[in-house]
C-alpha cells in the first residue's frame, strides 16, 4: 500500500467507478436516482474508487471497468500512443489502472498499461529534454500526472545543466516568497 499521506494516491482514489449493488444498503445518500436514502440490489451507482473498492472486496457490489480503459482508448493507444490525450481520460491513468486491474478480472489491463507507459515514456522524456518552454505547453496538456512529473524533472535537469555550464549566482531568493516585486521608488 502506498504511503498514507501521499497526496497523489489520495486523489487517484477519487476517480469514479460505476458499481452494481448486490446487497441492499440502508441509511446512505449515495444513490442520486433513488428518492429514499437506501440503495436496492441491482442498482447502478457511480462511486469514488475508495468506496467502490471496499464494497467490491466485501461483495456488497461489483465494479465495472471504467470508461477510460475502454476498447476505443486501447485502440488509440495501440495506433499512436504519444498522441492520445490521457489527461482528459484520467489524470491518474496509470495509478488508477494499477489499482483497478486486480479487481475487475480483466487480464489484459495490466499489460496494456505497461505497454502504453513504455510507448509514451520515450517521447515524453525526449521532449522534456529538448523542447523549448514555448513549445512545451502544447504537448504537456496530453500528459497524465505521472508523466508531467517526469517531464518537469527532465526540464529542470536541463536547466540545472545549463546553469552549471554558464555559471551564475549560487544564492537565490527563496522560491516561497514568490516572484520578485518591482522595487518601490
Amino acid at each position: 500500500m502506498a504511503n498514507y499521506y501521499d497526496l497523489d494516491d489520495i486523489i487517484a482514489e477519487e476517480e469514479i467507478v460505476s458499481v452494481v449493488f448486490q446487497k441492499e444498503v440502508n441509511g446512505v445518500g449515495i444513490d442520486p436516482s433513488s428518492e429514499t436514502d437506501c440503495v436496492k440490489p441491482g442498482s447502478k451507482v457511480e462511486l469514488p474508487f475508495w468506496l467502490a473498492n471496499e464494497l467490491h472486496l466485501r461483495q456488497v457490489g461489483t465494479m465495472k471497468v471504467p470508461a477510460c480503459f475502454n476498447q476505443k482508448t486501447r485502440l488509440e493507444l495501440g495506433a499512436d500512443a504519444t498522441c492520445v490525450d490521457l489527461r482528459s481520460r484520467s489524470p491518474y491513468f496509470y495509478e488508477f489502472g494499477c489499482k483497478i486491474a486486480p479487481l475487475v478480472g480483466d487480464r489484459d489491463l495490466g499489460s496494456f498499461l505497461l505497454s502504453a507507459f513504455k510507448n509514451r515514456y520515450q517521447e515524453v522524456l525526449a521532449k522534456g529534454h529538448s523542447a523549448a518552454f514555448s513549445a512545451a505547453s502544447k504537448c504537456s496538456t496530453l500528459l497524465t500526472r505521472e508523466e508531467t512529473t517526469m517531464y518537469e524533472a527532465a526540464q529542470s535537469s536541463m536547466k540545472a545543466f545549463k546553469k552549471w555550464r554558464m555559471g551564475g549566482p549560487r544564492f537565490q531568493r527563496a522560491s516561497i516568497l514568490g516572484r520578485k516585486r518591482k522595487p518601490a521608488d
Binding site: 446487497k23 441492499e24 444498503v25 440502508n26 441509511g27 446512505v28 449515495i30 437506501c38 475508495w50 468506496l51 471496499e54 464494497l55 466485501r58 456488497v60
Partner: peptide, 11 residues
Amino acid sequence: EDHYGALIHHL
C-alpha cells in the same frame, strides 16, 4: 442492510 449502511459511513 443497516450493517452495510453503517459500513459505508464508516468508510
